[in-house]
Computed example of a mutant assay.
Amino acid sequence: MARITSVDIYAIALPLLRPFIIAYDTFREMPTILVRLETDEGIVGYGEATPDEHVTGETYWSTIEVIKHHLGPAVLGENPFSIERIHEKMNQKVKGVPAAKAAIDIACHDLMGKLAGQPLYRLLGGPSHDKLVIPYVMSILAPEVMAEEAKAAVAEGYRTLKLKVGTDVSTDIARVQAVREAVGPAIRLRVDVNQGWGYTAETLQALKHLKASGIDWIEQPVHADDLDGMADIRSKTTIPVMVDEGLLGDKEMRQIIQKNAADWINIKLMKCGGLYPAVRLIHQAEMARIRTQIGSMVESAVATAAGAHLSLAKKNVWSNEMVGPRMFAKDVAAFPIEGDCIKLSESPGLGIDVNEELLTVLTRFHVKLA
């Protein structure tokens, strides 16, 4: 029976093709942490932690330290198939820190697939969808600049655009209206505020103006901890409402269901702790008739592949945003995107080949536990 015998931690930063601008931050590169687990049989699995201090309270360096001192030692000697036991051990060691736990979880799932000789989506339930379509994600820019970028994205073949907004409401309305006018009525638009509007009244005013723009949903317009506000907005608009930053794990999921606070939830492996807890959230949402999207913290091919396998396997995942690899100038592995569709391979586990030479070049800090 396979046992995990070593844990490698790689602190890296991936260069972005262009700055990524959202309501609460601007990223010019994406700091991330890769975890490499190896078994006594020489099988290797990769995982990833992409922490966001604005969402889960984890920083880049705190994540490295918690894996180094707590989660990495906890997983040594374990069978990667004992995923419930591994999560229980991690939870006993440290409360919270979901991105750090996601790195271990994803690496264990990669090992499971490789040990079973199966692509990960088959271990998660088999294919539930014929294809995985991704949106084009747009940073916050001037309305006329976003309109031109939207036209270029549509010319490249994208049929769905996700617009980042969250500054002042009037300019955000102009952004959405400019993009809709530029691309016409057939292109799907999704609007993500990233908590930027903050208050219910502002959101309801904005949605009155945005109704004519035909958006698929409004995502996290108010503060993450204001589920009452989300419920109020949902009760007063016909535009679907999505909770993102307001959902971390089971506690928030129960509250969302109790308060009728969402039509959609955005599940991110970095917010909930990996694939194992994400599956639980998907099933809870399905019972409550809430649709789910698998989102991304703009992750490398490693965590992106994990999210894509989950998206393919679960019927209640209606949308995914596995767009990270499209945003990087360099990545640790090739990721199979053709046009606006993900084409997962039949290779075991995550189905990607990490370029270990490039990983060495990108690494700023390396720790090995054995």
Results as ranks from 00 to 15, higher is better:
residue 116 A to N: 10
residue 99 A to K: 03
residue 112 M to E: 05
residue 137 V to Y: 01
residue 102 A to P: 09
residue 145 V to C: 11
residue 106 I to E: 10
residue 95 K to I: 04
residue 136 Y to M: 11
residue 133 V to E: 07
residue 148 E to T: 12
residue 146 M to Y: 13
residue 91 N to R: 09
residue 99 A to L: 14
residue 124 L to I: 05
residue 124 L to V: 05
residue 133 V to Q: 14
residue 81 F to M: 08
residue 121 Y to T: 02
residue 114 K to L: 06
residue 110 D to L: 00
residue 115 L to Y: 02
residue 138 M to T: 09
residue 135 P to E: 06
residue 101 K to I: 03
residue 105 D to A: 03
residue 90 M to F: 13
residue 130 D to P: 11
residue 122 R to G: 02
residue 100 A to E: 09
residue 136 Y to G: 03
residue 122 R to W: 13
residue 82 S to C: 08
residue 94 V to P: 09
residue 119 P to V: 08
residue 121 Y to G: 05
residue 91 N to Y: 05
residue 85 R to F: 11
residue 123 L to R: 02
residue 81 F to W: 10
residue 114 K to T: 04
residue 125 G to K: 06
residue 141 L to K: 13
residue 97 V to M: 06
residue 116 A to M: 14
residue 140 I to E: 09
residue 84 E to A: 15
residue 141 L to V: 15
residue 113 G to T: 01
residue 142 A to S: 11
residue 100 A to F: 06
residue 114 K to F: 07
residue 148 E to R: 12
residue 148 E to C: 07
residue 83 I to W: 11
residue 124 L to S: 10
residue 132 L to Q: 01
residue 147 A to M: 15
residue 97 V to D: 02
residue 83 I to E: 05
residue 90 M to G: 06
residue 146 M to T: 12
residue 120 L to T: 07
residue 118 Q to D: 00
residue 108 C to E: 02
residue 101 K to Q: 05
residue 133 V to D: 11
residue 91 N to Q: 14
residue 128 S to I: 01
residue 86 I to L: 12
residue 133 V to L: 10
residue 126 G to T: 11
residue 123 L to A: 13
residue 93 K to I: 02
residue 139 S to H: 09
residue 124 L to E: 01
residue 104 I to K: 03
residue 98 P to V: 01
residue 91 N to C: 11
residue 99 A to D: 02
residue 143 P to V: 14
residue 90 M to K: 03
residue 94 V to L: 05
residue 93 K to L: 15
residue 110 D to W: 00
residue 130 D to S: 15
residue 103 A to T: 04
residue 131 K to I: 09
residue 108 C to D: 03
residue 125 G to Q: 03
residue 112 M to S: 01
residue 135 P to V: 05
residue 109 H to L: 13
residue 104 I to M: 04
residue 128 S to G: 08
residue 86 I to A: 10
residue 132 L to K: 00
residue 90 M to A: 15
residue 129 H to D: 02
residue 121 Y to P: 01
residue 138 M to G: 07
residue 121 Y to E: 00
residue 103 A to L: 07
residue 125 G to Y: 07
residue 133 V to G: 10
residue 135 P to D: 06
residue 124 L to Q: 07
residue 148 E to F: 13
residue 142 A to G: 08
residue 111 L to Y: 00
residue 100 A to L: 14
residue 126 G to N: 03
residue 94 V to F: 09
residue 120 L to N: 07
residue 119 P to C: 13
residue 119 P to Y: 07
residue 125 G to H: 04
residue 148 E to N: 10
residue 99 A to S: 15
residue 95 K to D: 05
residue 132 L to S: 00
residue 134 I to C: 11
residue 118 Q to P: 01
residue 124 L to Y: 04
residue 124 L to P: 06
residue 140 I to D: 04
residue 137 V to W: 07
residue 137 V to D: 05
residue 133 V to F: 11
residue 99 A to C: 13
residue 112 M to L: 08
residue 130 D to A: 14
residue 111 L to M: 10
residue 91 N to F: 12
residue 111 L to E: 03
residue 115 L to I: 05
residue 98 P to Q: 03
residue 81 F to Q: 06
residue 127 P to Q: 06
residue 134 I to E: 04
residue 139 S to C: 14
residue 95 K to A: 12
residue 115 L to P: 00
residue 108 C to N: 00
residue 91 N to S: 11
residue 108 C to Y: 00
residue 119 P to G: 04
residue 144 E to K: 15
residue 93 K to F: 13
residue 146 M to F: 13
residue 140 I to R: 12
residue 105 D to H: 03
residue 86 I to V: 15
residue 89 K to A: 08
residue 139 S to T: 11
